[in-house]
Simulated scan of single mutants.
Amino acid sequence: MSYILDLFHKESFKRGAFLVLLAAFFYFCRSIMNFILLTFIVTYLISSLHGFIVSNLRKYIKVREGLIALLLYVLIIAVIVLVFYNYVPVIVRETTNIVNQATNFYNTIDTSDLGTLGKYIQPMITKLDIGSYTKQGLSYIIEFAKNFGKVSLNLFLAFVLSLFFVLEKGTIKKFGKKFEKSKLSTMYEYFVYYGNNFLNSFGKVIKAQILIAIVNAVLSSIALAIMGFPNLMTLGFMIFVLSLIPVAGVIISLVPLSFIAFNINGFTEVIYVILMVVVIHCIESYFLNPKLMSSKTKLPIFFTFIILIVSGDFMGTWGLLLGIPLFMFLLDVFEVKVS
């Protein structure tokens, strides 16, 4: 009996129990995990930016943190609306032009002008069921719209929750302090300790990802300017925002850029855009990401690269962003000091 009581009081047992409860929490919340992670990231970024602005302004003037938070959110929302207002019409217009050009090509093609080759192409063209392809395409568009609507709702709720967190940051800290002298004090101490360690690691990863996004946006803007793309400021900002999504963001940006490229100079321009994205993707994946992540986290590049591959395979895009902080968290659990 005494052995069991001693076991309950051991530090290793308490840590293990905390981690089991934490894993159980995330398991039962797996259906809303995307929302939880999105809220965490939005709150972390805006809270860090708010803290940076307030700490610098305090050197010169007396500031009201709540007012600064509201102004910051108004500015962020204004930028998002401005980008969508200027950019979405461009995407819609370019997409419509591509569809119209493809339809006109299909309706006006004359295989007799192709000579012998036309005899082989004609049966292939007559077998094309444009109606079924159109219905299939519409189903994909409807599915995409549903997913986009869900993501937009999650993003909106994440912004609202992050606003409440930033406005009530002091109150939330005071509320958390009440657990220090409660029966949950041990769990609270572990939560604060491991939470701070995870946030420190996550902050380093985010800083590295912002640097990567800036490099991607600059390189892409230079390449697009050489290719004669319009609206470079808008496109550059879009690429910067998408590049905050590790690796996948560069690929996502290929879709709207291809639409615009096709309307500028047809398939030739699309090929140039694809080559540009491939080159930038390689630079990010095989040089910037491992190098910057390793310099921020003090991990060897080899381990950084392996972690990114494994976490990306297990967790997708979230794994690329959270893989290294989670690995650093596990090192803390096992008391492995890397820096």
Score class of each variant (00 low, 15 high):
S2K: 14
Y3Q: 11
Y3N: 11
L7A: 12
H9C: 04
E11K: 15
E11H: 14
F13N: 01
K14N: 08
G16I: 01
F18Q: 02
L19W: 08
A23G: 07
F25W: 11
Y27P: 00
C29E: 04
R30P: 02
I32N: 04
T39V: 05
V42H: 06
I46R: 06
S47C: 04
S48D: 03
H50P: 00
I53S: 08
S55I: 02
L57S: 07
R64E: 12
G66E: 13
I68Y: 07
Y73S: 10
A78W: 09
L82Y: 14
F84K: 12
N86D: 08
V88H: 04
T96L: 08
A102L: 14
N107L: 14
D110R: 10
D110T: 09
K127C: 05
G131K: 13
S132Q: 11
G137S: 08
S139Q: 08
Y140H: 10
E143N: 15
F144E: 07
N147E: 12
A158C: 07
V160H: 03
L167Q: 10
G170E: 15
T171F: 12
I172D: 01
S182N: 09
K183S: 13
F191I: 02
F198L: 15
S201E: 07
F202T: 01
K204P: 01
A208C: 08
A208Y: 08
Q209P: 06
A213S: 14
N216F: 04
I226C: 01
G228S: 02
T234I: 12
G236K: 10
G236T: 04
S243I: 02
I245D: 00
P246V: 05
I252T: 04
V255M: 12
N265V: 01
I271E: 05
V273Y: 00
V279K: 02
S285G: 09
L288N: 08
P290N: 03
F303N: 00
I307M: 03
L308F: 06
D313P: 00
D313A: 14
T317E: 05
M328C: 10
V333R: 10
E335T: 09
